[in-house]
Every structure is written in structure tokens, then in C-alpha cells.
């Protein structure tokens, strides 16, 4: 059921992105000097721009199905797929590491704050988390460079500046920071709510130790809101990676995306948008299915 539900979303998203590009005032080559009509026709034919819109869309969809996003308008020698294939592994490593870091640090900090509610530790964690969600990555990342690379010279200022693993440390932390903050706040709030619930009170009346209550009663319901946040979190990490790749000069998908955007490379920007949308929709579906599996009230339907 849910899998079937995701398909129309997917189609709708691709269609919207596709139509947006096609609705652009003027063709993709308008900005350049005027081409002779026959050359223009040849180009249009090569890119199938002469076909009716529905046919173009179907052609585009068919391409996506086999992983072909068409040629890039700027990087003439590459197809969009080749660019993605080349850049994505790096972006994925960055994003996955940041997400992992955010989960580990965020959940621990949130739990610690919730279990020592109103203590100094809780106030400190809450204040830092508030900073984390308030201060954007593009402010944090350059300041990190200023402090850790320029002033202290502990870490390389850019990806190209080192060949070792240390060149990814700052980018990962910068990308993870806002997510750490969000996850910590979310974990804290839901943990406090669960620990104040009637069924935890029952468990305490049954003489269960706090550790047992957390392990057997609280952890699962407290983590469910976190699970539903995973969808937006993945989208946020992808967005953040644009900035991080820009600041640290990492040749990932985000950097190609921005240079494509600044150079009006329609197919590249469209391709990356659709590619990321598909990833996010699929991951969301996984999260949804997982949620249904973990919540007995949904499972038994």
C-alpha cells in the first residue's frame, strides 16, 4: 500500500521539476550568441527539444528508469549521470558520516538532558542546541575554518589542502552540527514526555530500576518521533552539504549543483534535483515502513 502510494509522489515531483525547466523563458542556449537556424535545429533535435512536451517527459522518465539523466548543457563531454556517478560517492560519505555523528551525539545529549531535567547539564545542552538550530551552517563553517585552520592550524582549511582523512573532519562536523541540535532537542522533549507518562509511573510502581524503565519501556516510544524526523533530516543534510562542499571546496554533488545553477545548466540542475528527490522519497518510504513495523498500533491494522 505504502509503496504504491510513493509512486504518484515520485511522478508528481519529477513532473513539477521537469515542467519548471521547460517553462523557462527561452531555451537553454538563448544566453549565448545567436546560432544559425540550422545549427539550432540540429541541437534541438539532438536534445529532443522538437518533440511535444508529453513525449519529452516520457523520454525523460524512461531515461531516469535506467539511470540516464541526459547530457549536461555545460560540461559538454559528460552526461549528467556521469557527473552524479563521479560526485555522489563523496557526497554520500560526507552525508552518511554526518548523519551518524548527529544521531550518536544528538541522542546521547538529548537523553542526558532529559534524564537530568532542569540540571546545569540540561541547561547547557539546551542552550547549545538552541545555538545549533539558530546559527546556520554557512556561518559556522567559515568560522570553523577561521578558528581551527587559520588560527590554530589543526585541520586543513579545504578538501584540496590535504590528502589524509583529516580533510573530511571539519566538513562532517559542520554538516552534523544543526542536526545534532535538532536531534538533541527532539530526543530531550520526547524522552521527558515519555518519562512523565502514566505507563512509566506504573513501571516505577512495579519497582523497576530507572535503567530498566528506559531500556524496556521508554526507549522505543521515545525514539519514534526521531524516526519520523529522519525524512526531513535527510533533506536537511542534503541541503547543508551544498554549503559545506562550497565552503571546503569538496567536489561533491552539491558543488556541481551550484556551479550548474550559476551557469544555468538546466539539465544538470534538473538531474540532480530529481536524483535527490528520488533518494529522499525512497528513504522516507523506508522510514515509514520501519515506523509501521515498530508501532504495534499501526502494525496490527
Amino acid at each position: 500500500m505504502r509503496i504504491l502510494g510513493a509512486i504518484p509522489t515520485l511522478l508528481l515531483v519529477i513532473a513539477v521539476a521537469f515542467l519548471m525547466v521547460r517553462a523557462a523563458p527561452g531555451g537553454p542556449f538563448d544566453s549565448e550568441r545567436a546560432l544559425p537556424p540550422d545549427v539550432e535545429q540540429n541541437i534541438e533535435k539532438a536534445y529532443h527539444l522538437d518533440e511535444p512536451l508529453p513525449a519529452q517527459f516520457v523520454r525523460y522518465l524512461a531515461g531516469i528508469a535506467v539511470g540516464d539523466f541526459g547530457p549536461s548543457f555545460r560540461y559538454r563531454d559528460y552526461t549528467v549521470s556521469e557527473i552524479i556517478r563521479q560526485a555522489f560517492p563523496l557526497s554520500m560519505r560526507l552525508g552518511a558520516m554526518a548523519m551518524l555523528l548527529a544521531l550518536i551525539v544528538g541522542v546521547s545529549a538529548g537523553m542526558a538532558a532529559a534524564l537530568h531535567k532542569n540540571s546545569m547539564l540540561d541547561r547547557l545542552i539546551s542552550a547549545v542546541a538552541m545555538l545549533g538550530i539558530s546559527v546556520p551552517i554557512f556561518v559556522v563553517a567559515p568560522l570553523m575554518v577561521l578558528v581551527f585552520a587559520v588560527s590554530l592550524d589543526w585541520l586543513p582549511a579545504s578538501y584540496a589542502g590535504s590528502a589524509g582523512a583529516d580533510r573530511l573532519i571539519m566538513p562532517i562536523i559542520a554538516l552534523a552540527l544543526p542536526q545534532i541540535a535538532y536531534i538533541a532537542r527532539l530526543t530531550r522533549a520526547s524522552m521527558i514526555e515519555i518519562m512523565a507518562s502514566d505507563f512509566v509511573r506504573t513501571a516505577r510502581a512495579q519497582g523497576l530500576r530507572t535503567a530498566s524503565i528506559i531500556r524496556y519501556h521508554a526507549i522505543k516510544p521515545a525514539m519514534l518521533p526521531l524516526l519520523s524526523y529522519m525524512g526531513p533530516a535527510i533533506a536537511a543534510v542534503l541541503t547543508g552539504s551544498i554549503v559545506v562542499e562550497q565552503v571546503f571546496g569538496i567536489p561533491g554533488v552539491g558543488q556541481f549543483f551550484i556551479s550548474g545553477a550559476l551557469n544555468r545548466d538546466y539539465t544538470l540542475v534538473l538531474g540532480i534535483t530529481v536524483f535527490y528527490a528520488v533518494i529522499v522519497i525512497v528513504l522516507n518510504l523506508v522510514v515509514d515502513l520501519l515506523y509501521g513495523f515498530l508501532d504495534p498500533r499501526i502494525r496490527s491494522r
Partner: peptide
């Protein structure tokens, strides 16, 4: 409200014995 909606009845009771 007093029973944990996420844990089966058996597990909730068994936990008391084990604890």
C-alpha cells in the same frame, strides 16, 4: 494509559518477575 502501548502484555508482566 497505565499500560505501555508499545510492549506486549506478556513482556510487561514478565519484566516485573525478571527485575
Amino acid at each position: 494509559a497505565s499500560l505501555n502501548p508499545y510492549v506486549s502484555i506478556g513482556d510487561q508482566l514478565r519484566r516485573i518477575l525478571l527485575e
